[in-house]
């Protein structure tokens, strides 16, 4: 795996392998020295052209736990303000000798373009309304931990699907892992077309809530909504919010997820977040570091020889003559 640009680039086996590796790194993080030298000598640039707290800091911690060198680049303090183009900025950073660039950008597709311009591994940390693959991986990781497996499980994604990169990546990851996904929201917040996704749609949360293994509440992104697509936060809560009354109708073993930051009293009531063990929001935050370690390790940690499996020119490394049982 050279880049991680969209979840759609990964098949089920690759997704499961990343989650398995995340399990291994979660164990590393429990050690008295929670750090391994797997990326020693590698350099990771965090290029965040859009604000972020939790994604950026968890990539930062993940890279350091793997012993990589980390360069933080933020758009606010850069020559972009002097009129430098994205391409020039990216090529300048690349010329310093880096192995991976973690990119967040407000424009959909920016990480893809950067991957065409430079030779480093690109990890998409969120681009516009398009994709947020590491969020989907950590959501899948948390759901797999809580439910055992996503296979055959019924997951509802509730809210502003149209403007959500998290939803787009989650839909692809959950369905690839075998889950049945239902999108719930007002028509104004659903994307104009649902193809090629294999999903169901419901406009009435109460009709499906009793059947769910997991409910994924999206944030109402008031800052991204250019025009009013919901009448009011209050009406949204009445129809689509996870109120205490709705939470009682959710199965006892169901899981409640939210990508954060939460609008309490809109998507979810404080009464639910405060005392309900089914709320997995802190698990989601905690999963960020091991999952992003797995991603960084998979893009630059190994596999330099994968490109030439049949080459036969390189000497067979001595260690591999040892056969393990």
């Amino acid at each position: 795996m050279k880049h991680l640009l969209t979840i759609g680039d990964l098949d089920r086996g690759e997704l499961e392998e990343l989650l398995d590796h995340a399990d291994r790194f979660a164990e590393v993080l429990t050690r008295s020295v929670p750090k391994v030298p797997a990326l020693r000598g590698r350099t990771v640039v965090l290029a965040f052209f859009e604000d972020s707290t939790r994604t950026r800091s968890s990539f930062d911690v993940a890279a350091r736990r793997l012993s990589a060198d980390v360069i933080n680049f933020s758009a606010g303090a850069s020559s972009l303000n002097k009129g430098e183009s994205l391409r020039d900025t990216v090529e300048t950073i690349h010329a310093m000798g880096i192995d991976a660039m973690v990119v967040r950008h407000r424009s959909s597709g920016a990480p893809h373009r950067i991957a065409e311009w430079i030779d480093a591994s690109i990890v998409n940390a969120g681009d516009g309304w398009h994709q947020h693959p590491t969020q989907a991986l950590l959501d899948s990781y948390v759901l797999r931990k809580r439910l055992g497996s996503l296979d055959g499980r019924h997951i509802a994604i509730v809210g502003d699907i149209a403007h959500s990169r998290v939803a787009r990546s989650d839909i692809e990851a959950f369905t690839a892992l075998g889950a049945r996904v239902t999108l719930v929201g007002p028509t104004t917040l659903l994307p104009p077309t649902l193809s090629p996704w294999n999903v169901e749609v419901a406009h009435d949360l109460d009709a499906v809530i009793g059947d769910l293994d997991a409910i994924y509440l999206l944030r109402i992104q008031n800052e991204r909504l250019a025009e009013p697509l919901i009448p009011s936060n209050r009406e949204y809560r009445d129809r689509f919010g996870l109120t205490a009354a709705r939470a009682r109708r959710l199965r006892a073993d169901a899981v409640i997820c939210h990508p954060g930051p939460m609008n309490l009293g809109v998507e979810i009531d404080r009464e639910v977040t405060a005392n309900d063990d089914r709320v997995a929001v802190l698990d989601q935050v905690a999963a960020g570091v091991p999952v992003r370690m797995a991603v960084l390790f998979n893009v630059i940690g190994h596999g330099r020889f994968d490109d030439t499996p049949s080459g036969g020119d390189e000497p067979v490394p001595a260690e591999t003559n040892e056969v393990h049982s």
């Binding site: 590796h21 291994r24 590393v28 391994v36 030298p37 797997a38 793997l66 390790f297 940690g301 190994h302 596999g303 330099r304 020889f305 490394p317 260690e319 591999t320």
Partner: peptide, 12 residues
Amino acid sequence: AFYRDDIDLRPV
């Protein structure tokens, strides 16, 4: 695996 100097050559 994560501590190997030949980490490229061995699967995790």
